[in-house]
Design a protein around this nucleic acid. Structure first.
Lengths: 336, 336
DNA sequence: TTGTAGGCGTTATCAC
DNA sequence: GTGATAACGCCTACAA
């Protein structure tokens, strides 16, 4: 149906080789011939088959992005960054959403065959040993976003420091009884951010001579509704905290609802800090630790394309993006 | 580097043809041979090149999704649905974000070559005549989501009726002075939803013997901040409306902020209704007209894959998804 | 049941 | 400067 290079060659009265040379505008073509070929291309409304070209030159002109749980707003935000960065190039973006370890492994296995994509971006995926080996053996350029394996170039934030900023913000307001609400480490896809943030809170409190008692540490399934329940429980203790740091904005939203459930006013009686600075944080006036999600996607693409173009760097590159506290209306001084 | 079908054949002591037959599990293979081949495949960690296979059989096993302004939350939600539906198949999802007419045209031109993807999903894009012709000529299976051209199978909602539901909800609460806040029709990508919703409001009011005066019709650039300004202006008129229907949730959020700016309480003095039912609507307690965004993606994929498998339907299929009003806390009876 | 060989559309390496 | 021709990796008649 569609025209091929052969048809163009015939119409222009030249060989396929010449058409190819025009297509890839190589110098050694007679200007007149070139014009004739271009005319034929226009007449036939021809454009080359990416598939055939890919097979021939061994590159696909597309990059694969593997994301777990595309439904998480933070992941969407990173994807936006990736798409944005890629759209200024002529690489296609192939998205793989993985929600089971099986699918994750099969996707990565397919991708590392090297025929499907020219590079791979792993978002929020901590590769296990088998995967690391498979990727390295395949030599497929690979970059991690929001994951920490030192054997790959990667884009990360300092979660420990970020949590420390949240603590500092609360200490500055005068809080002493600070609690932490985080994710249960998921079995299938261990996502270490919550743990690191937990550590950051503990460490920063200790540095200030304070403590994070077990009673003020609540861990549960990620998500709003679970956070709501946990917060209710936390606030009905005999000595409730005056401030709560959550491992994510979503949990902070849930925490706020939980506070409302037991009629504890935010920020008068309880200050709440989230993490990520999603859109909703702005809408809701949530104080939060901002991490540059969009930019992480952009940075990941940049790292990856460099690697695709120049080959692997001598040593993996670690890009650390800055975090900061965005103070809005859910934090204030502790109750007297 | 990576193993090819040739290596597998050699290792298993059979021909390439036989390996291929095993790969596509065709019946006419001796069970023993099959086992031997499978073993060789496992040993070599082989998986077939999608590129070569695609070139050979003329299908790519991937579908292209073209979305304008991937940054809009409603688009993201549709994308989630598309990804979800596709992930249960073995089709890859190639995402194209287009933000200029030039890029839109070049993307669609590339895609209609038929070599890159097996089908195309156009989200929120009203194709112009040239595009329609190009697509039809290429015979590339194409489905529209949230766009109305009758020459294609498509997934839509009844915007007019949806807006009517919003009006009905407000009338039921006793409102008489109802205003509408909508998008300026964008030049580059004309997006008719706002206009249709406007029409729906007007029509429903008229059916109730009421009017939508020009003074109560405010139209501006889409987005929160512009809606905020417009709402402030609207509310400082001599006879402000008691209710405001917005063409999108984002604008409703802006409207609410605008009301707060001029110290008009929602819902005591002003009721606000949005459109879409994004996540934020739930977080903020916004009354809104829910449209099934996620499901629209699922439905679009279903339509498209049928078309890829069975060829084009005799007549384009129009799938209309249901809308309904979700009453939350931004609507109530009008002030006495 | 299995092997052989031509073709998918392009690029690259030769000659000429 | 241009034209053959052999790859690229797979699939699929057609033979055997």
């Amino acid at each position: 149906m569609a025209a091929t290079i052969r048809d163009v060659a015939r119409l222009a009265g030249v060989s396929r080789g010449t058409v190819s040379r025009v297509l890839n505008n190589q110098p050694r073509v007679d200007p007149e011939t070139r014009v004739r070929v271009l005319q034929a291309i226009a007449d036939l409304d021809f454009s080359p088959s990416a598939l055939a070209r890919g097979l021939s030159i061994g590159r696909t002109h597309s990059i694969g992005v593997v994301v777990p749980f595309i439904t998480r707003p933070s992941v969407v935000e990173r994807l936006r960054g990736i798409e944005g960065a890629l759209s200024t190039t002529d690489y296609d973006l192939v998205v793989f959403n993985v929600e089971t370890p099986q699918r994750r492994d099969s996707v990565i296995r397919d991708l590392t065959r090297g025929e499907r994509v020219d590079g791979m971006l792993l978002v929020g995926l901590e590769p296990d040993e088998a995967m690391v080996e498979a990727i390295q053996r395949s030599r497929l350029p690979t970059v991690l976003v929001d994951a920490h394996d030192a054997r790959f170039s990667r884009v990360v934030i300092d979660d420990v420091a970020g949590a420390g900023l949240a603590v500092k913000h609360l200490l500055g307001l005068g809080h002493q009884r600070i609690a932490f609400l985080g994710d249960l480490p998921q079995v299938a896809f261990s996502y270490p951010a919550s743990k690191l943030r937990h550590r950051g809170v503990r460490r920063a409190l200790r540095a200030a001579g304070l403590d994070l008692p077990d009673a003020y540490t609540v861990i549960g399934d990620p998500g709003r509704s679970r956070a709501r329940e946990l917060t209710r429980a936390l606030l009905t203790r005999s000595t409730p905290p005056t401030a709560l740091i959550c491992a994510s904005d979503l949990q902070a939203v849930g925490a706020r609802e939980g506070a409302r459930d037991v009629e504890i006013d935010v920020p008068t009686d309880l200050s709440i800090v989230g993490f990520d600075d999603l859109d909703i944080a702005g809408y809701l006036g949530l104080t939060t630790v901002r991490q540059p999600l969009f930019e992480s996607g952009v940075a990941g693409v940049r790292l990856l394309l460099e690697q695709v173009a120049d080959g692997p760097p001598a040593r993996p590159v670690r890009t650390v993006l800055e975090v900061d506290v965005v103070a809005r209306t859910t934090t204030g001084p502790p109750p007297a």
